[in-house]
């Protein structure tokens, strides 16, 4: 089992505690985290990725307790094993497209295999845009660049936060195809958090998150 969570609860000041169902993901799995906005999808992803220590519960990564590690060890594990795609993409505006993709390797302190960047640029049709700044790219090109950045280091899991919700049907389908093909190529698990019901059909494993905001849940064990 690559990634496992148990009894996760997150309490934040000024909002009711969020409890999340247990989860276990293996490499090659495709999991959909479906829930309306406010259900804590991004918070759950943050906890799973080692970015937010839960108030209660555990996260295991390759059978190791993720939050028992030092914070810099967590940063390293995340950098090398997780690929992230954000809804708003978050390409750094001051860097070129190629620099933005390479950022994944630079920040993780790792080197991609030789030719990996060129291969990705070619596969995603970005070769001639490599030295442009994000401002000079179309939305679709930015989306593809963000995917390239997420899979650069052949992560064991690709986490995407609302990758399709801002897109029309055709583009949503194209992005899902791309994510699935890249996950398959790199042998990574795919974990997508969304409220976008259109992509349900792509997944066998669907985890529904309730809108926990209005409720006053009792603390989970």
């Amino acid at each position: 089992m690559f990634l496992k969570s148990q009894n996760i609860t997150v309490r934040r000041e000024g909002s009711p505690p969020l409890s999340f169902p247990d989860l276990s993901i293996n490499t090659g799995d495709k999991v959909l985290l479906l829930g309306p906005s406010g259900s804590g999808k991004t918070t759950f992803l943050s906890v799973l990725a080692g970015l937010l220590r839960p108030s209660a519960g555990e996260v295991f990564i390759e059978d190791g307790d993720f939050y028992a590690m030092s914070s810099s060890a967590r940063d390293k594990v995340r950098g090398q094993n997780f690929g992230f795609i954000f809804q708003t993409l978050h390409l750094l505006p001051s860097l070129t497209l190629a620099q933005n993709i390479m950022l994944a390797a630079d920040m993780a302190g790792a080197k991609p295999e030789a030719g990996r960047l060129d291969h990705l640029l070619k596969t995603l049709g970005l070769t001639d845009k490599a030295h442009r700044k994000p401002d000079a790219l179309s939305q679709g090109e930015q989306q593809r660049a963000a995917i390239a950045r997420a899979v650069l280091l052949r992560p064991k899991i690709i986490m995407a936060d609302e990758p399709t919700s801002a897109l029309d049907d055709d583009n949503a389908k194209a992005v899902m195809n791309l994510l699935e093909s890249q996950a398959k190529e790199t042998g990574a698990a795919l974990l997508i958090a969304t409220h976008d019901g259109r992509i349900k059909e792509n997944f066998k494993t669907i985890i529904n998150l309730e809108n926990q905001m209005p409720k006053n849940n009792k603390e989970a064990a």
Partner: peptide
């Protein structure tokens, strides 16, 4: 700060 958050997600340590 959002850029910085992205860098952290990509594996940068706070020290970095």
């Amino acid at each position: 700060r959002y850029d910085l958050a992205v860098l952290r997600v990509l594996g940068a340590t706070p020290r970095r």
